[in-house]
Design a protein around this nucleic acid. Sequence first.
DNA 1: GACTGGCACTTGCCCAAGGAGAGTGCCAAC
DNA 2: GTTGGCACTCTCCTTGGGCAAGTGCCAGTC
Lengths: 338, 338
Amino acid sequence: MSDDRRLDVLRAIVEDYVSTQEPVGSRALVERHHLGVSPATIRNDMVALEDEGYITQPHTSAGRIPTDKGYRMFVDRLATVKALSQAERRAIETFLTGAVDVDDVVQRSVRVLAQLTNQVAIVQYPSLTRSTVRHIEVVALEGSRVLLVVITSSGRVEQRIIELVETPSEQLLADLRSRIAHASLGQRLPEASLRLADMIETFEPNDRPIVSSIVATLSQTFTNERSDERIAVGGAANLARFGSDFDTSIKPVLEAIEEQVVLLKLLGEATSGLTVRIGAETGNDNLLGTAVVSTSYGADEQALATLGTVGPTRMDYPATMAAVSAVARYVGRSLADT
Amino acid sequence: MSDDRRLDVLRAIVEDYVSTQEPVGSRALVERHHLGVSPATIRNDMVALEDEGYITQPHTSAGRIPTDKGYRMFVDRLATVKALSQAERRAIETFLTGAVDVDDVVQRSVRVLAQLTNQVAIVQYPSLTRSTVRHIEVVALEGSRVLLVVITSSGRVEQRIIELVETPSEQLLADLRSRIAHASLGQRLPEASLRLADMIETFEPNDRPIVSSIVATLSQTFTNERSDERIAVGGAANLARFGSDFDTSIKPVLEAIEEQVVLLKLLGEATSGLTVRIGAETGNDNLLGTAVVSTSYGADEQALATLGTVGPTRMDYPATMAAVSAVARYVGRSLADT
DNA sequence: GACTGGCACTTGCCCAAGGAGAGTGCCAAC
DNA sequence: GTTGGCACTCTCCTTGGGCAAGTGCCAGTC
């Protein structure tokens, strides 16, 4: 028995099952794929594949469907890369180029990804802690209030208004501006936070209360975990693909993707490359029938954040993976331009 | 036949149907509500109510269920206000008081509203056009780039970076700052936009290209429709309450609430008071089986935006209405403090 | 040794028939 | 106007038989 053909059979089963959503039998297999052998032969291969755990039968007299292990094998070794069509690429591009700010980029990319894959799309907002400081502004407002504005390399703007114990002099503010700029510009946010802390001691003792109050607020902004946790979700209507029984097949997924923590965990573990997690690999019991395709995005070497899709394990992996990569690429580029 | 009792019967039918989700028969009605008459009498009342279009039978041998008209009557004349429990009030309060910015307030209120009502909650971000200008900052960046920051009365911060044709002098910038502040502070955004436009002519002709470029960007920011369109949705898992058949009862709703335009239309028409729209009143064919409870929020006389819930017509109206009002009240208060 | 055709067997799905249960509508009586 | 009684209707659930799909295995072939 040729090992090659057995893998061909597995690939054929996955492809057929994905497109028909129905267990695939030996006869259908030889008819739709020119395998050059008879159904009986395929049946023998199927028995072997089943013994190895790649496929299974829902019930005795039905065809076979891939197991999670089968999908894994398919993704790892059998899937042929499917390039996006010219039209799809253009769709992403036109969709994203209209974006006016970071928020808009994220919203649009969720939409386009959901549309492209017919799945639930999730996009994490660009991480603060992985960006660098592009600009910091310290502005005196009325009274002793001060406005702090931070612009990051990902185009994100954070602002804080704080009430100081006393009104700072113009002199001090100017001094602060230049020293803050010097200490933090171009630095990663966590690092900038450290350097700002060191900077406090370079000021006159009299000025330190004001300085440290401002620095503290900035540091807090830089290392704000909550901002890192923002996520956009879209295409929930595509949950229909999971099956028609709401309570058993859809609700758990819906609950999982409404839980930020779960999503962050799913996205967070993505390495820089494209990651596919199938069934139990998601580490979440609510997602046993689902697969998550994710990748990080970011213009340069450093990843800014992650995006991906959640769909049933019986999804079109090549197409989904292509779409996720493509959107990530465009989003990274788009943010770099902002 | 007493008219009063007939309305009592209608109320009882609505209440029972809402709690059991099953057509309610005459026997069950007399048992659960001490109406003091026999099932046969109730049956006569039911015939009358059915003739008037308040209730209907799914099939001949089943009990009755309220029609949309029946729910409307219930909401308008029969529902008794149900105050929130102390615990619920405290839940809202503690949930919202931890919020650090506008974004956070909105996110949290969606969550708490969804949890409280067990329905899909939608919260519109505070409208820009209905806020006033609290602060405007014009900051020179490197080169001829300028950062504009606008803070509104609702605590929202908008920023733009623009590239000017030439680098403005410090002198001009200072002048700009004070005149912009004078023209716009405390004004409603659309109004501020107009006053800024008038201001351009008070500058030297030489400076006008720069000034008008800045003013144009500010105006655009003030009247940015897109920002008014932001909406947060939560509690989609509660869609389970709509029924168990995904395609017919849930998917349409899911599609509707993913469509920003639809949501905005639903929320946008809410007057300052609490609005309940039932079935066809939503004006959306996808929402025929659903009811929308919404109200505007905002600290002072002027409404900032709208929030509400989407649920099946067979919902607990008194509880939902109470929750929506309460959350709106707390959100308004919470934003005023920011 | 690998492949093939044939065939008995298993099993889920569909459909029709029948019984149970719930609720109504109506009528005669109060 | 209200009530008890009763025949009627309709859905839901269960049961059982036929159907179709697909398998597993075996003996035969290249």
